[in-house]
Amino acid sequence: MKKWLIPVIIIAVVGFGLVSWYFGVKNGAIEVDQAVKKEWGNVETSYQRRNDLIGNLVKTVKGAADFEKSTLEAVINARAKATSITVDPTNITPEQLAQFNQAQSGLSSALSRLLVTVEKYPDLKVNQNFLKLQDELASTENQILTARTRFNESIEKYNNYVLRVPRKFVLSEYKEKEAFKAVEGAEKPVEVEFDFDNKPQ
């Protein structure tokens, strides 16, 4: 073998290795980015399920005589506001997440007030539709917590991937993404349990 071929072969091998690494990094970035979008979709699906259940809950409660109109209207308005806010998973900003979180928190507060008010209505407390919705709401709150946790885990993987050197130098188009944070005072989940031990006989 001629001596001049050795450096050419070395350069070709190194060049092939660098190109392979470059494409591997780019493909890896696509994977972690897609994972974030998928998990955000799961978050939205969980919240949509809650919004649908709240709509059914409002219909059930509306049937109760003399039920507080203002309490129902607060839930309806909060639900409308919560469903009107969308977040672009390709460009999640702290402002978008804060706005989304604020709207969902407002809906949670309105729902809590509605559920407390229900205690004054014995017929509602034994209504089978209402009892079923109570169970489904509790289950959905757990789904929301799980979806948010998984979303934050995917954000962590994404940020670790795109921000670490040397990948950071070839992934300049991939920006750091924000994780889901609880709104102030939202350390506790929405209370969706009722005291049905005192049912009227």
Rank of each mutant, 00 (worst) to 15 (best):
Q34R: 09
R49V: 07
K26S: 11
N42G: 10
N27P: 10
I30K: 15
K37L: 04
D52K: 01
E39Y: 03
E44Y: 03
V32W: 04
G28E: 08
D52I: 04
V32C: 03
G41H: 09
N42V: 06
N51V: 08
S46T: 08
K26H: 14
A35C: 13
S46F: 02
N42Y: 10
K38A: 06
W21G: 08
V36N: 01
Y47H: 03
R50H: 09
N42A: 11
K37Y: 05
V25H: 07
Y47A: 07
V43W: 08
V43L: 05
W21M: 11
F23Y: 12
E39K: 07
D52E: 14
G41A: 07
K37A: 09
G41S: 11
D33I: 04
E31T: 13
Q48F: 06
V25W: 10
W21E: 13
N42D: 14
K38S: 14
V36F: 00
I30R: 15
A29L: 05
N27K: 13
L53C: 07
D33Q: 12
E44S: 09
K26W: 05
E31C: 05
K38P: 00
W40H: 04
E44D: 14
A29C: 06
I30E: 15
G41Y: 06
R49M: 11
N42C: 00
F23G: 11
D33P: 01
G41F: 02
A35G: 03
N51E: 15
G28Y: 02
V43G: 10
A35S: 08
K38I: 06
R50F: 07
A29R: 01
E39L: 00
S46K: 06
Y47K: 01
D33A: 03
D52V: 05
W21T: 04
V32F: 01
A35K: 03
N27F: 05
R49I: 13
V25A: 15
E44K: 09
Q48M: 11
L53K: 02
Q34S: 15
N27A: 15
I30A: 11
V43M: 05
R50N: 12
A35P: 00
V36C: 02
A35W: 00
K37N: 04
D52S: 10
R49Y: 14
W40P: 00
E44W: 02
T45I: 05
F23D: 07
I54C: 02
Y22N: 15
E31R: 09
V32G: 02
N51K: 01
W40R: 10
Q34A: 13
W40G: 00
R49E: 15
K26N: 09
N51P: 08
K37W: 05
D52Y: 03
E31F: 03
G41P: 12
K26T: 03
V32H: 08
W21H: 12
G28F: 02
S46L: 03
I54D: 12
W40Y: 06
F23M: 14
G28I: 01
F23A: 11
K38C: 04
Y47V: 00
Q34K: 14
V36W: 00
W21S: 10
S46V: 02
A35D: 15
I54W: 06
Y22D: 11
G28M: 04
K38F: 01
F23W: 14
E44I: 04
R50T: 03
R50L: 12
Y22I: 04
E31G: 12
N42P: 04
N42M: 11
V43P: 00
G28R: 02
